[in-house]
């Protein structure tokens, strides 16, 4: 009798184990499927990856360097000969290589300053949200104060004072771009903290670090990803504005903003100098905007 029951149980177990495994769909997989359905966002992502790859590897493959002068080709219009596809500037430097090198700087500033701003913003916002009370109040008043600051003027002031090294430009932009993220993360943390499932986890005795790891961080992640993509174009734009005004990285190093600024000065006779970097910068901004929209639609839990 007992043996029979055991055998039946074993058979059931075997049956269950032999069933094809049903894959649970995680929220992240759902989000990926939704993102992939968004044509504009996918195309933007592909273009952005292509631009990035061209900026990273292009200069290594091309025969010119960003600071070498070609005396036979000064202020050359775009041509297919000798790889001067984007033409040359008035010092005979190849603009294709300079545009790609400039893109390296612009994208790198964008990436580094965004990462730094996201880290600061998340830590600041999460701390304020968790602590609550007076500490929260104080930390958020400081954010309010930062908002009242005319950021472009402060950026100009800081770049004037500290210098125009690459890492100082990144630092300056970081300091002025983390506040949005901290506000959003604080709000989200506050709302998650008061949810019933957190209370339930507390009630069944789950430890605080586990609650943070299992429940709070995953729920914060979506909004952090969305606001990161929103931060990127703003950061790239700030760097370009500083460079355009002649307050970014210095010659012979270059960035898209520097190239556009130089190009506007000779726009009448050599419009191509401005055209290509401007087109690449606009394309990058357009793509990051679309990717941001796509991610927001994919990750917004309200949409489900």
């Amino acid at each position: 009798m007992f043996k029979k029951k055991q055998a039946a149980a074993a058979a059931t177990l075997e049956n269950v184990l032999n069933q094809p495994v049903v894959q649970g769909r995680s929220p992240w997989r759902d989000a990926r499927i939704r993102f992939m359905r968004n044509k504009a966002a996918v195309v933007s992502l592909v273009i952005l990856v292509l631009i990035t790859l061209a900026c990273v590897f292009g200069p290594m493959l091309l025969p010119h360097t960003y600071d070498s002068t070609d005396w036979d080709a000064i202020s050359l219009a775009p041509t297919l000969q000798n790889w001067h596809w984007f033409g040359t500037d008035d010092l005979g430097r190849d603009l294709l290589v300079r545009t790609l090198i400039g893109g390296r700087i612009s994208l790198m500033v964008g990436a580094l300053a965004t990462i730094a701003a996201v880290i600061i913003g998340v830590i600041w916002g999460a701390t304020a949200g968790f602590m609550g009370g007076k500490i929260d109040n104080l930390m958020m008043r400081m954010v309010d104060m930062m908002y009242a600051v005319p950021y472009l003027l402060i950026a100009i002031l800081m770049v004037t004072l500290l210098g125009r090294e690459f890492y100082l430009v990144v630092l300056t932009i970081t300091i002025l771009s983390w506040m949005d993220m901290s506000r959003v993360v604080r709000g989200q943390t506050l709302s998650i903290r008061s949810k019933e499932y957190i209370e339930a986890a507390h009630a069944i005795g789950v430890s605080t670090p586990t609650i943070i790891r299992r429940h709070i961080v995953p729920n914060l992640l979506g909004i952090v990803v969305i606001y990161t993509t929103v931060t990127v174009p703003g950061v790239i734009l700030t760097e370009s504005v500083l460079s355009f005004l002649g307050l970014g990285v210095q010659e012979p190093m270059t960035s898209w903003g520097v190239l556009i600024g130089d190009g506007t000065k000779t726009m009448e006779s050599q419009p191509w100098m401005m055209l290509f970097p401007a087109a690449l910068l606009s394309l990058t901004l357009y793509c990051t905007n679309y990717i941001g929209d796509g991610l927001r639609d994919a990750l917004d839990p309200k949409d489900r």
Binding site: V241, G257, M267, L281, S282, L285, N289
Partner: peptide, 19 residues
């Protein structure tokens, strides 16, 4: 407005209307 920053639109305006 969201893709073309002012320092691109401005020079283009100059190019078209004054040059």
């Amino acid at each position: 407005g969201s893709a073309f920053p002012s320092f691109i639109i401005g020079p283009v305006l100059v190019l078209v209307f004054s040059i």
